Simulated scan of single mutants.
Amino acid sequence: MAKIMLVDDAAFMRMMLKKALTESGYTDFVEAQDGAEAVKKYGEENPDLVIMDITMPNMDGLQALKKIRESDPDAKVVMCTAMGQEAMVVEAIKSGAKDFVVKPFNGERIVQTVSSILGK
């Protein structure tokens, strides 16, 4: 089963992502609270997919996306964004994000996105 890294400064959002994915059979998760921790843990854990918030302290999701893609050009990263951040979404896609989901997200949309990217 795929290992999925959940990156969000809000523990509640990580819990909601994990709940939606667990209900669809995903069980292997790594969590990070900000972009800097995500970059570090990506190198240690080598997840199959990263779901990452854009707006976080220390290092935002766009910076972390770029650093992760520098170390692993094949990294699969899905960005989470609040409504109204279209410019950030465009930058994320240009920087190599595979997709994005808008918060508050629909659990089914998260599962469809993850399954599509991982080929399940």
Rank of each mutant, 00 (worst) to 15 (best):
E70A: 07
A20H: 02
I68M: 01
V111K: 00
K66M: 14
P47V: 12
A64L: 07
T22R: 14
Q33S: 06
M79S: 01
A75L: 11
V78C: 05
K41M: 15
E23D: 09
V39K: 15
D8S: 15
Q85D: 12
K120Q: 07
M16E: 04
N106T: 11
A97M: 03
F105P: 00
D28T: 14
E70W: 02
A32W: 03
L6E: 11
D72R: 15
R109N: 13
K67D: 03
T81Y: 01
P104M: 03
K3V: 12
C80I: 12
L49S: 06
I54W: 01
M83R: 14
V89A: 02
A10D: 12
A75Q: 13
K94F: 06
G35C: 04
M5Y: 05
D48L: 10
L17M: 13
T22A: 11
V111C: 00
G96P: 03
I93N: 02
K3Y: 07
I68R: 05
G96W: 01
K103Q: 09
M56H: 05
V7G: 00
I54A: 07
V78I: 01
E70L: 06
V7A: 02
I68G: 00
E91Q: 05
E91R: 14
P57E: 07
G43T: 09
V78T: 00
N46W: 14
M83H: 12
A11I: 03
D28F: 08
K18A: 03
V90R: 10
P47F: 12
T113P: 08
G61L: 06
P104A: 09
C80S: 12
I4L: 04
V102S: 13
L65E: 08
V77I: 12
L62H: 08
D72I: 08
A92P: 05
M79F: 09
A36R: 15
L62F: 00
E86G: 15
E86Q: 08
E45C: 06
A82T: 12
L21P: 09
D53L: 05
M16I: 02
G84S: 09
K41C: 08
A32I: 04
A97S: 06
Q63G: 09
D53R: 01
S116E: 05
I4M: 02
P57Y: 04
A36E: 15
D48T: 01
T27I: 14
T55H: 13
T55G: 04
E70M: 04
A92M: 01
K98C: 03
G61Y: 02
E70T: 15
A38F: 11
S116A: 08
E91Y: 06
N106C: 08
T22L: 10
T113R: 04
E86Y: 09
R69L: 09
M52R: 06
S95L: 04
D9L: 01
S116N: 02
M13D: 11
G35F: 05
R14M: 10
D28L: 15
G61T: 09
G35H: 01
E86H: 10
G61I: 04
A75H: 00
T22V: 14
R109V: 10
K40T: 06
E45V: 12
K66P: 06
E86S: 10
I54Y: 04
G96N: 02
D28I: 12
E70F: 02
A82Y: 09
M83D: 11
M56E: 06
D34L: 14
D72A: 07
E31N: 02
